[in-house]
Each structure stands twice: as C-alpha cells, then as structure tokens.
Design a protein around this nucleic acid. Structure first.
Lengths: 230, 230
DNA sequence: ACCTGAACACCGTTCAAGT
DNA sequence: ACCTGAACACCGTTCAAGT
C-alpha cells in the first residue's frame, strides 16, 4: 500500500483525492447508464479535470474500470457478511448467501457484469487484475468457510479432510448462483416466473445435491493428491 | 426468412453476399483476438469494402455483433444435439449437455462471452436481440425437452404436470452449467484443479439435487397457477 | 507530484453521390 | 439496391510544458 503517509498537505493540486473522485464518478456512470461505454474523457469532464489527468492515477481506462469492479466485490463481500449475521446452520447460510448474490446483481446489473467482465480478465502484466482477483477471492473465502463448516458438521456430503473437495463443492454452489444471476440480469432465459421462485428452486436443488452427493464419494476412494492445494 | 429467392443474379455488386462475409470476418476477429473491441472499420477493411458499406446490411456495430452471437448459439445447439445422439437416459443426457456446454465455452471463450454479453441484451426496439433471444431459446428448448422426459419417467423430482416446475428445473440446471462455464473461461475462481474435475463435481451435485428435490415438493402442494405459462 | 493543453491517429456514423 | 468517399464530432493516449 503505497502513497499513504501524507496528511499535512493542504491539497495536492486541485481536489485532495482525484483518484477517489474518478472511481466514484465512474461508478456513478456505470450505475446511471448501466453500461461502461462512456469515455474516459467524460469521466474526466465530470470530475472537472483535463482529459489527461486520469493518467496520473490509472494506467488506462481499463485500469479505472478495474477499480470500480473492486468496489463491487467489496459490496458483495459486505452484503454477504451482513446477511449471514446471526445465522448458524450451514445450509441456511448458503441460502442467504445465494439470495444476497442474486439480489445485489439485480440492484446494479451493470456493476455485476463489469465485475465479471472479460474486459478485466484478460489483462496480463498489470497488477490491477490481480487486485480484482484477490478482492473476489475474499468474497469466495466466505463461501468456502461455510462449506468447510458444513463438511465438518456432516450437513454436507463434502469430505472434511479434502481441501480439494471443499473447493469443488464451493465452486459448484457459486457457479449455480452466479449463473442464475447472470441469466436473470441479462434476461436471457425469457420467462415471467418471479425471480424469487427461480432463486428458491435453484437453491433447493443445489442444497439437496450438496446434502446427498456424499453417497457417491466411495467411487473415488484414494485421491492421494487431495492435499496438494492448501 | 427474407431475401432468399434470388439466384439468377451474377453478383449484386462486389461479392455475392457481403452480409455473410462481414459476419464471417467479425467471427474470425472475435476468435483470433478473443475480443470484440475491433473497429467496424477494421471489419470493412478486411472485407475489402469502404467504411460505410456495412451499414447497408447492419444498422450498427452492435447489430453485426448480434449476428455473430447468433452463429454461436447455432453452434451450441448443434453441438448439444450431436453430443446427445444415441443417448436415452435423461440423466446421461444432462451430463453430456453440461460437458458440451463447458467444452464449447473453453473452445472459444470470447464468442461465449459475446453471446451472453450485455452489449446485445440491452437494446430495445431493434429486431436483432429478438433474433439472438429466439436462437438462444432453441438451445434452451432442447434442454427443457430432456427435463420433461425425465419428469415423466420419474428420473427427476420434477412434476410431470407442471410446465412451470419443468421450466424452473431446467433453468436451475442451465444456471449451474452456465455459471461454471463463465467462471472457468474468465478464470475468476482461481484454482489449478482440472476443468473436468470441476465439471464433474458440479454435474454430480446438480443431478443428485434434481433426483432428490421431489421429496420436498409436498411443501407446496397446491400451486393453482402452475399451468398459466404454456 | 500532479495537472494542463495541444496534438496524433484513430473511431462510429452520416450525408451526398455514384453505378 | 448496394457501394464509395468525404466529412463530423468524437475517442484513447502521448508529449511537452507548466506549478
């Protein structure tokens, strides 16, 4: 975390923290226009700076969008934690996590699309995608912890000793919820059945699957490399 | 299907079917660059026409990308049907559908992203998104038919009399597979566990859920409006 | 260290002609 | 009916200065 130990400055130049202002402005545009086709110049214009000013804080437009996506992942993580408060049973926890995920997606579809957009995924060397990935990983950690607890308590048919199986189970759940959210916000699966009905049917199916799938674990008894990934 | 009954023409102007050429060129660019940030001018350049020529066949760049997405949906539908050949059991059918879906996604990630891209979803009046949606619906119809058969045979815990429950069950399955594919091709869920392992774990969980979830249907016995959507 | 302002090589799209 | 070519109002990004 660089650029931290300055406090006595009155104001660097124009506004204390242009970086912050640019991120907020971009997030506003994403939210209002439900789109990120706006120009970088437009962001600068709204922030009251010259077209080149953003380049002092971001390497390019993609970099700025990445910072906006990070805010989205933060909201997701916080929203999930808030929804989980006071709930103990792993199955109930997964249910509220799933509902929160879908709800937040519906609240700001464009932000969600941006978070998982290829526009951010395919950049190689920069450290921005790393940031996005690590913030996404935090949200993911919450989910994996719930799965781990359910595995230990016997609520889920997930091996408590196999980090690998826990990861795969968590990914299965996340995939289902993520896929539903994407299909819903992009209105791909055209139906007028209420979103809540779609969510509950999905959760019922996947949770039932997580409960029962253990019976089949005897199919692959000796998985020697199960602990390779910790 | 308009514009069909012309055959005696030598060539309308330059190449017999610029529309086709533009779609193919755009698909090539999507495939090669794994991206659709290329300019419409670039497509025209590669097709050997002037910058304005595409506007005789597409209303704008989005419209052309929509036509490319339609090709993607066609491939998906054909790929699914091909994989299903000779298989009878509904559970086995869902498994091969799921594997095909993920595999095609990995084969051309950018095309997949484009197919489900917001760039095509949020256009209102044009008839292009309608085309995309209806082609996507054809792929979806294949899936719903399998679910319906499984519901009738008792393989799935889906009510054979409720069109609504069949739709929701199919959506649940599609969501899971779609979500996994998206997370995998965008490399969101960072792990080096093989894609096949991730796919099989997901399929195992969701198929088990579809088998078992019927036990809970007694929770909502009288759903009077079940037949509203046919 | 952070910002301006001019400049470059591009866009998407439109308009007026051409055949 | 389909295409060209010039034109318009924009971009993202770079470069040389300013404070």
């Amino acid at each position: 975390m660089p650029k931290k130990n300055r406090r006595a400055d009155p104001r660097p130049y124009h506004h204390g923290d242009l970086r912050r202002v640019l991120i907020d402005t971009a997030l506003e545009l994403v939210t209002d226009e439900q789109d990120w086709t706006f120009s970088l110049r437009e962001v600068a214009r709204r922030a009251g700076v010259s077209p080149h000013a953003p380049y002092n804080h971001f390497t390019d437009k993609q970099d700025l969008l990445g910072a906006v996506a990070v805010v989205g992942f933060e909201r997701l993580r916080v929203g999930m934690l808030r929804a989980m408060a006071g709930i103990d049973a792993p199955e109930a926890l997964l249910a509220v996590i799933g509902r929160t995920y879908v709800r937040l997606g519906l609240e700001n579809p464009a932000l969600y699309r941006l978070m998982f957009s290829s526009a951010l995924a395919d950049v190689g060397p920069g450290d921005r995608p790393t940031l996005v990935r690590s913030t996404g990983a935090q949200a993911r950690a919450v989910l994996e912890e719930v799965i781990r607890r359910g595995a230990r308590s016997g609520a889920f048919a997930v091996s408590p000793d196999s980090e690998q199986d826990q990861i795969l189970a968590a990914l299965s759940f996340w995939s289902a919820v993520h896929g539903l959210t994407m299909l819903v916000i992009d209105n791909i699966w055209g139906t007028d059945l209420p979103v809540d009905d779609r969510t509950e049917r999905l959760l019922r199916t996947v949770l039932e699957g997580l409960r029962q799938a253990r019976a089949q674990q005897s199919r692959q008894p000796s998985q020697a490399t199960a602990r390779d990934h910790v």
